Simulated scan of single mutants.
Amino acid sequence: MDPTLLPGDPASLSPIALFQQADLVVKAVMIGLLAASIWSWAIILAAGAKLRRAGGESDRLEREFWKAQDIDRFFDRHGEAEIPAARILAAGIREWRRSTAGPVIDREGVRARLATLMNSACAAEIDRLSARLNVLATIGSVAPFVGLFGTVWGIMRSFTAIASAQNTSLAVVAPGIAEALFATAIGLFAAIPAVIAYNRLSHGIDRLEARLLRFADAFHATLSRELDADR
Rank of each mutant, 00 (worst) to 15 (best):
R157I: 07
A86G: 02
F65W: 10
L24F: 00
E95R: 14
A229L: 08
Q21N: 14
A115I: 05
H203C: 00
L51M: 13
I71K: 06
S14L: 14
I31R: 06
A17K: 06
S130M: 01
Q69D: 07
R87L: 07
L13F: 11
R211N: 07
G102I: 01
A218N: 15
V25G: 05
R63E: 06
A171F: 02
I196V: 15
R94Q: 14
I162C: 08
F215M: 15
A81L: 14
D230I: 00
A194V: 03
G102Q: 13
E226W: 09
G204D: 13
F65S: 06
M118W: 15
R200A: 01
L6D: 01
S141F: 11
W96A: 03
A81G: 05
N199M: 04
F189A: 14
G102W: 13
P3W: 05
I31S: 05
A165R: 02
A221S: 07
L33Y: 05
N119H: 14
L213V: 08
R98F: 13
I186T: 10
I196M: 15
L133R: 02
A115N: 12
A229T: 02
P15W: 03
L208T: 00
A180K: 04
N199L: 01
M1S: 07
G32I: 10
A17G: 04
T4I: 08
P3N: 05
N199I: 03
Q166I: 00
A137N: 04
I192D: 08
I205C: 01
F145D: 01
A101C: 03
M118H: 11
L223R: 03
G140M: 08
T184G: 11
T116Y: 05
L33C: 00
I38T: 08
M1D: 10
R111Y: 09
D70C: 02
A91W: 11
L33T: 09
P10K: 04
R132Q: 03
T116R: 11
Q21A: 13
W39Q: 04
L114Q: 11
A183L: 13
F19H: 06
F189H: 00
S164I: 14
E125Q: 15
E209Y: 00
E125V: 05
A171M: 03
A124T: 04
R214C: 03
G147K: 09
V142L: 07
P175Y: 15
I93R: 09
R225M: 12
D2S: 07
C122R: 11
A115P: 00
D2C: 03
S40C: 09
L227W: 08
L188F: 10
S120N: 10
N134M: 12
F74Y: 14
E209H: 02
R94Y: 05
I105D: 01
V142H: 10
M30A: 09
A171G: 10
T168N: 11
T100G: 06
T4D: 10
A221Y: 04
F74Q: 14
I93S: 01
L33W: 07
S158E: 09
A90N: 12
A194R: 03
I88K: 13
S99V: 01
P15L: 10
R52C: 14
I155R: 06
V142E: 06
E80V: 02
W66T: 00
T138I: 04
A112M: 08
Q166N: 10
F65P: 01
A42H: 04
D59H: 09
